[in-house]
Design a protein around this nucleic acid. Structure first.
Lengths: 151, 151
DNA sequence: TTACTTGCAAATCTTTTGCCGGTGT
DNA sequence: ACACCGGCAAAAGATTTGCAAGTAA
């Protein structure tokens, strides 16, 4: 069991939440995933890596766990929300609105942007929930790959 | 009739699109609006300022007009997409994810950020479609107003 | 025991699509 | 005339909710 999963399970108890089978499956799914997952992927068992569970319960648990600060969701373009364990190291995202690809970076690597925006416009921005969106290198160069239905 | 509306109507013809009554209403609605509007608001006639029209047709026209570059949509937080005329002066947005407020700024005022992100991460970002999201000044200072259901 | 949870079905909300009669050019 | 368009109804995709039965603590 990964240390991140262990932490999450411990946190569930620490928050006074019950550690039910369905709850455990959601956390296991996010823990074995290689990146943020949609609720549907979690319910489907992350491609067979954990047993499947009920979609409505997955949504309910993601919501509960997010309120507790144990998981987080991010909006990468037009696709459905994606969910991940709330790691110790805060991650922020850059997303390509053309091909749907994205990259995650440690939040501190975007501090310069945050400070600039704060000083210039008075907004304190962050990119863990709503990422920076634009074109990745290949797409900006006129790439043609497309994972995501463009608008 | 505002110059922006006039330009839009002309552009419709220039694109080879028909200037139907429903199409005209969508453009009129966006022209009299004080900011980006949801499809539902446009269909409702922008609060009675223009006659109401059919919601499905509004969506179809917004889509057609966006492909023609005459209108644009932006995602301000979790709320439905908002639509506006594609002005000559490109606007980008800063949105508050707590109170739902936002501000628009001329795109060039964010060029420094764009250049920095481009050089540092290789992404060419823009904020007219997916804005910069964070907390506005009052909310960052612990404000309590809330127009938008928070997550 | 008892309050918190689940699974299933049904409802919501936003957006899209099928169809067919109407209309701009 | 003829391809494009509009209105209405139904569908689709993502997410939420009602409810009765199940279960962690």
């Amino acid at each position: 069991m990964s240390p991140a999963l262990n932490d999450a399970l411990t946190a569930v108890r620490a928050c006074g939440l019950r550690l039910s089978a369905a709850r455990r499956l959601v956390l296991q799914g996010l823990a074995v995933a290689d990146g943020p997952m949609s609720a549907e992927q979690v319910a489907a068992g992350v491609g067979g890596r954990v047993p499947p569970s009920d979609l409505a319960s997955v949504y309910r648990n993601l919501d509960t766990l997010e309120r507790a600060g144990i998981v987080q969701h991010v909006h990468l373009g037009h696709s459905p929300s994606l969910w991940a364990l709330a790691d110790d190291e805060a991650l922020e995202y850059l997303a390509c609105e053309r091909c749907g690809d994205y990259r995650s970076v440690p939040a501190h690597e975007l501090d310069a942007v945050r400070v600039y925006i704060r000083r210039t416009f008075g907004y304190t921005v962050s990119f863990g929930h709503f990422p920076l969106v634009g074109l990745c290198g290949p797409c900006a160069d006129g790439g043609s790959a497309r994972r995501d239905r463009p608008r």
